[in-house]
Design a protein around this nucleic acid. Structure first.
Lengths: 231, 231
DNA sequence: GTAAATATTGTTATTTATACAATAACTAAT
DNA sequence: ATTAGTTATTGTATAAATAACAATATTTAC
């Protein structure tokens, strides 16, 4: 492969780190791995690794995530890029963060390759992480919060069928606020939901009705130009 | 400097491209340079170049922008990163887009280094650009539009003192819609503006009053937690 | 059946958005 | 100076969204 004038300019390395969010017990969780390698051996980290020379970024993000956690078939979105010259102790490694939203209960995760362990941790209880991963996580969580307000991505975190209270809890956890139940329901009225006959099971009180997101109807609405998802 | 196991992983190059937006005659413009170098010699492009090995990204973005256009002291924000393996014909070059908002009339731009020419072009009239720069420009303009709705960045594009109509035109151009003058003024009432005694000059009709953004007051408001800029 | 717990709907007042009309202030020509 | 033309600015009426809080309904556990 022909190269630009100075070899010095081809002395970089490029990695991808994937912040995987999931929702469980009213909390937004993030998937962490325990590093079995130096540097930062035995510390928790966001799953990530180096990109192969001929690999497209989104493919690489999928591959790396699968190698480390066996997580597969998730839709990854790009977030911020971090390139401080000293962020990696072993060389100039620039990294792009990716993020995905998953239904925890639908996916199997399993430590693999140089990941010694994997676990879900509530976003607000994340420990000190390797490299600048706390910075990466925080900036990506901020991005998630922004997107929650103008795209219907909360439904990627919620179970396929969810109660309106679960949906409310998700927003309450993300933004650290309490909301009025009645008003929350009015606010989400423009969002196309399918109301099922089915109800919540195994709860010690009146079970709530289950809903699901009507994505077909949502597509029609957005095509019509006047509709805008808003939370 | 010690390096990670395989040299193959240090075979990348990293560049930064800065999309500079300015507002003039009711149109949002973008700053382009004409390339004096292969590849894509003589084509218009977004100003950008390779990052030095020990340089932080935001510093590098500033340096590169200055080298090519003499534009200085602008606040650069990171946008998306592009890394398709074939996006650069001469090697694996991953690039991050940055963007800045400037008052065209306050800054001097001048072609320099390997930029043969510089010019401002209305965003909706941009020609075919070098590399994947049309893609970069479009994605960055989308980001700008989003930010215009939840951050008071329109005031970085408008003259220090502006008329309410100029402000309205900026949003009309960005979103491609026409707005009602009376309602626009009501909508922006929560935004802290300073109303000056000064008026528009050299117009063939009743001159409009000049306003400026009250950033001190805005800082106080946002500190108070309940306020949120919204357009 | 009754208490406890939560789900769901309703009522009212307040604020915000939308459409359109009316008035005010300036320029330029007569 | 008067007047027409042009744009700035304010007002009015209606509909829609938001917010606070009250009331009712449905289920479980005993």
């Amino acid at each position: 492969m022909y190269k630009i004038a100075f070899d010095d300019f081809f002395n970089y390395s490029f990695s991808l780190d994937s912040v995987i969010f999931g929702f469980r017990n009213g909390e937004i969780n993030v998937l962490l791995i325990k590093r079995a390698l130096e540097p930062f051996k035995n510390m928790w980290a966001i799953p990530g690794d180096l990109v192969y020379p001929d690999e497209d970024l989104s493919n690489a993000a999928e591959r790396i995530l699968f190698e480390l956690t066996k997580l597969n078939n998730v839709e990854l979105h790009q977030a911020q890029t971090f390139g401080h010259p000293k962020r990696h102790p072993q060389g100039r490694v620039i990294t792009s963060a990716y993020f995905a939203l998953v239904r925890i209960e639908e996916f199997h995760v399993e430590a693999s390759s140089w990941a010694e362990e994997v676990k879900w941790v509530p976003v607000h209880e994340v420990p000190e992480l390797a490299f600048d991963h706390n910075l990466i996580l925080n900036s990506t969580f901020e991005l998630l919060k922004k997107k929650l307000t103008y795209e219907p991505i909360c439904f990627d975190l919620l179970p396929k069928r969810f109660t309106l209270n679960e949906m409310q809890q998700l927003f309450e956890y993300a933004f650290g606020v309490e909301m009025d139940k009645a008003n929350f329901r009015k606010k989400i009225r423009p969002i196309p939901l399918i109301s099922h006959d089915e109800k919540q099971m195994n709860v010690k009180h009146r079970p709530a009705k289950l809903f699901s997101f009507n994505s077909e109807s949502y597509e029609e609405l957005t095509a019509k130009e006047s509709y805008q998802f808003k939370m």
